[in-house]
Simulated scan of single mutants.
Amino acid sequence: MNTFLISTGVVAVAEIGDKTQLLALILAARFRRPLPIILGIFVATVLNHFAAGWIGQQLAGMISPTILRWMIGLGFLAIAAWALVPDEMGEEEAQIKPYGAFLATAIAFFLAEIGDKTQVVTVAMALKYQPLWAVIAGTTLGMMIADVPAVFVGKWIAARMHILRYVRFVAAGVFVLLGVLALLGVAGS
């Protein structure tokens, strides 16, 4: 229980103001479907944190900081390019096919979490604490505590403002900035 609570608290605090909170807000503004977005966040987080925990236990210290920095930077630039691709699905189709919001969220969150500070925290927690399932459950709950409120704020903003046209440009700009900073080694995730 101690491992679970520590993991939850550490990730909930680490996630405050993180780029994935912005991503949750953007996805909520785009899709206006909180349940598939929340489920996408949950699935992506479980998969990502399981991988991070497993890697933390199996391969501690084998990836150099330089290689990790390049992986993070190039990943952010790829996400930026993806964000610029206009959606082919209209608002009506998004309402009919709820898996569109789910898949978009799951993929975006999984990729955004690669090399993110919460993933690094998960690796560190898995190195220090056992059992692995308690670390993963705790870090996942911490992520949900931090990101689910952003989903509802994004939905609220989208209902009151016509911002959907600009969401992909803002998202691309944020991820380009993060990618360039990571490649330059100026800022950590």
Rank of each mutant, 00 (worst) to 15 (best):
N2C: 05
I6V: 14
G9R: 05
V10S: 08
V10K: 02
A14W: 01
A14K: 05
E15D: 13
L22K: 00
I26N: 02
L27T: 06
A29Q: 13
F31T: 04
F31G: 05
I37T: 14
I37F: 04
L39P: 01
G40A: 10
V43H: 04
V43Q: 09
A44K: 07
A44G: 08
F50Y: 11
A52I: 02
G53E: 04
W54L: 14
W54Y: 14
I55S: 12
G56Q: 01
G56E: 04
L59G: 05
M62A: 07
S64V: 01
T66F: 03
T66A: 11
I67C: 02
I67E: 08
R69F: 03
M71G: 15
M71V: 15
M71S: 12
G73F: 05
L74C: 13
L77Q: 06
L77H: 08
L77K: 11
A78H: 03
A80W: 02
A83L: 02
V85C: 06
D87T: 11
M89Q: 14
M89A: 08
E91C: 04
E92D: 14
E93R: 14
K97A: 09
K97C: 02
P98H: 11
Y99L: 12
A101C: 07
A101N: 10
A101G: 14
L103E: 03
L103S: 15
A104V: 10
A108F: 14
I114N: 06
I114G: 04
G115C: 03
D116Q: 12
K117P: 09
Q119S: 14
V121I: 09
T122F: 01
L127W: 03
L127E: 12
Y129M: 11
Y129F: 15
Q130A: 12
Q130Y: 09
L132V: 01
V135T: 06
G138V: 06
T139W: 02
V148Q: 08
P149W: 09
A150C: 13
V153L: 15
G154V: 03
K155Y: 08
W156E: 04
W156D: 07
W156I: 02
W156S: 04
R160I: 01
Y166H: 09
R168A: 03
V174T: 09
V174R: 10
F175D: 02
F175S: 00
V176T: 08
L177G: 02
L178M: 08
V180N: 06
L181G: 00
L181F: 11
A182Y: 05
L183G: 07
L183M: 15
L183K: 10
L184W: 00
G185V: 00
V186E: 10
S189K: 11
